[in-house]
């Protein structure tokens, strides 16, 4: 029996499938321990009251309280929706615009590309500190510049009407990062012959952009849109460092409120329920995008 087992083991190691599975196993094990297991646990916790020492089953109470009795939950959700609806479209348009400009066979491409890329390399805490002083109402560079053209800027981080805009504006600083590079890669992947064919048909400028560039770029656009929305719903560090959620909860974003509930108030059941509400919202939004994508995303040669 022993030699039989050995032979079977030997046979197994001769099969490529065994090796393939072995090589991906680090990810699979990590997925089970750090993703799949925790997802189930978190769903379980969301129906309980849990503070690290005692756990009680409360049914849907966490969800009910959040949705019906917690004005801050709605405030945080509204803040986040506003942030997403401003920063995602602006961010995608700006990163596409930069990519288009950089793709114009310009001189000094490397220098320009570096200028646009560098801000996205700044660690988020350092970025938050820098912007805190950019927005400083007396000495900040923003209001100092505005004063030069005779405009009195608002108190960006103290006035609750201005704060949401300040955060949206700050998010634009990073648009030259990965998103822009992905657009640029997409632009460079469009074969020149397509433009030449369009030109022969008498299309130029805007028409070329509308009928060649945009459709060819739509898969990349879709990728950026899906991940951009998901990312914008998780804005955390900047608000935590710059305002702590203030003034008057104007920058209390969803992820910040969730973090406070989890690690400051130790309401881990409530925080888990918040996480699942967030996940559900993102699932619905992503599903809608995938459904509507068939109408505007163009995949060359079918499915790839």
């Amino acid at each position: 029996m022993q030699p039989n087992l050995l032979r079977r083991a030997q046979k197994l190691t001769h099969r490529p499938a065994f090796w393939g599975f072995l090589f991906i196993s680090p990810w699979l094990i990590g997925f089970l321990i750090f993703t799949a297991g925790p997802m189930l646990t978190s769903l379980y916790l969301s129906f309980h009251k849990y503070d690290l020492s005692s756990i009680t089953y409360v049914g849907g109470e966490n969800y009910r309280r959040l949705l019906v009795e917690d004005p801050l939950f709605w405030k945080a959700l509204k803040n986040t929706l506003f942030y997403a609806s401003v920063s995602v479209p602006l961010g995608i348009s700006a990163s596409l615009a930069i990519a288009l400009l950089l793709n114009q066979n310009v001189k000094g491409l490397k220098l320009f590309r570096t200028c646009f890329y560098l801000p996205s390399l700044v660690p988020s805490v350092a970025a938050a500190l820098v912007w805190e002083w950019v927005f400083n109402s007396d000495n900040g560079i923003l209001n100092t510049s505005l004063r030069m053209i005779g405009v009195t800027g608002p108190q960006w981080l103290q006035d609750e009407r201005a704060t949401p805009w300040a955060f949206a504006m700050m998010s634009l600083w990073g648009v030259g990062g990965a998103r822009m590079v992905i657009f640029l890669a997409g632009l460079q992947g469009i074969p020149d012959s397509y433009y030449e064919a369009a030109k022969l048909d008498g299309a130029s400028g805007w028409k070329c952009f509308r009928n060649v560039t945009l459709p060819m770029l739509s898969p990349v656009m879709f990728f950026n849109l899906v991940l951009g929305i998901i990312g914008s719903f998780q804005v955390f560090t900047s608000a935590y460092v710059m305002t702590g959620g203030g003034p008057n909860h104007a920058s209390l974003f969803y992820a910040l409120y969730l973090f406070q509930n989890a690690f400051e108030y130790l309401k881990l059941g409530k925080a888990s329920a918040m996480a699942w509400i967030l996940f559900s919202i993102l699932l619905v939004l992503t599903y809608i995008q995938f459904r509507t994508s068939k109408r505007w995303v163009y995949y060359e040669g079918g499915d790839k």
Partner: peptide, 17 residues
């Protein structure tokens, strides 16, 4: 698909581990 999963969903149980 895990790229679309917000980290908040797994954060608390991972902390418990």
């Amino acid at each position: 698909a895990t790229m679309m999963l917000p980290g908040q969903v797994t954060q608390i149980p991972v902390f418990m581990i």
